[in-house]
């Protein structure tokens, strides 16, 4: 799979469709984001699998925003999984990136990773290699629903109490791009204390994820204290889908319902 992708990237360079490619590279026994500017560098190219599939994932789309701001004239290729593509689709809609300057090179996640992620769409549309892997419905959301009202409150209170306000969830999030973050607004959430106000801090972030979260799960991976943020945001996404018929990152031409005023209420 990797070889096919490398060939594809080389073609993009040769056809002058991109000036640089944002992907992953293994170096000194570590896998990290890397901006390839020369096809000759592609030797250490990595798909982010070190000990198990996809254990080294990074918010490449977020890095791309910074690159695009610095080099607005250049065109970038970028390595994408299903979730990365959904993130990019959202970022195009929110005018954080110019779609015309971005070429996605997509590959599917293995079934194993799709199951671990409970990912509904573990492949991108821009697939250049591999098969479309079957999507998985979340069981973790069900588990929490089955706890009952009291059980759910107890569960979330305990999990949110662990928070050390490291902002890892926000900082790694590919669709967090606000210049000023309300979570850092002292009038809304008092600063200087951990855990930050429970449950306000996390519920505010979760509500902000409505119509935005593309379910990549990097927040939960980054969380040092094991708060199941992905499950929380999965439920948020489900509600948004059932109320508004919107799944972030799936359709390019449909805007988030939280970005428009909409029609008159019926009643």
């Amino acid at each position: 799979m990797k070889e096919t992708i490398i060939e594809k990237v080389k073609d993009l360079f040769e056809d002058s469709r991109i000036e640089a490619f944002l992907g992953l590279k293994e170096e000194n026994g570590q896998i990290g984001p890397y901006l390839f500017t020369d096809p000759k560098d592609l030797e250490g190219f990595s798909l982010g699998d070190k000990e198990w599939p996809g254990d080294k994932r990074y918010p490449l789309s977020k890095i791309l925003i910074a690159l695009a701001q610095k080099y607005p004239e250049n065109r970038f290729g970028i390595l994408v999984r299903g979730c990365d593509e959904r993130a990019l689709n959202e970022l195009f809609k929110w005018n954080q990136l110019n779609e015309e300057h971005v070429v996605m090179v997509g590959f599917p996640c293995p079934q194993e990773l799709a199951e671990a992620c409970e990912c509904p769409k573990p492949y991108p549309e821009s697939l250049v290699v591999g098969e479309k892997v079957k999507g998985i419905k979340s069981k973790k959301v069900e588990v929490i629903l089955n706890m009952g009202m009291e059980g759910r409150l107890k569960y979330w209170t305990e999990r949110f109490s662990r928070c050390i306000k490291c902002y890892g969830c926000r900082n790694v999030c590919p669709v967090c791009f606000c210049n000023e973050c309300e979570l850092a607004n002292d009038d809304l959430i008092p600063s200087g204390e951990i855990p930050p106000e429970n449950p306000i801090f996390h519920l505010v972030r979760a509500a902000h994820m409505a119509g935005r979260c593309i379910d990549c799960g990097l927040c939960e991976e980054a969380c040092p204290v094991g708060i199941p943020l992905r499950t929380l945001y999965k439920k948020v996404a489900d509600i948004v889908d059932s109320e508004f018929g919107y799944r972030p990152g799936y359709q390019k031409d449909q805007k988030s319902p939280f970005n428009i005023l909409g029609e008159r209420p019926e009643d």
């Binding site: 662990r162 050390i164 490291c166 951990i194 040092p224 204290v225 094991g226």
Partner: peptide, 10 residues
């Protein structure tokens, strides 16, 4: 620990 050594707290 959570405050001074968060990754040990993990």
């Amino acid at each position: 620990t959570t405050l001074a050594h968060p990754l040990v707290a993990t």
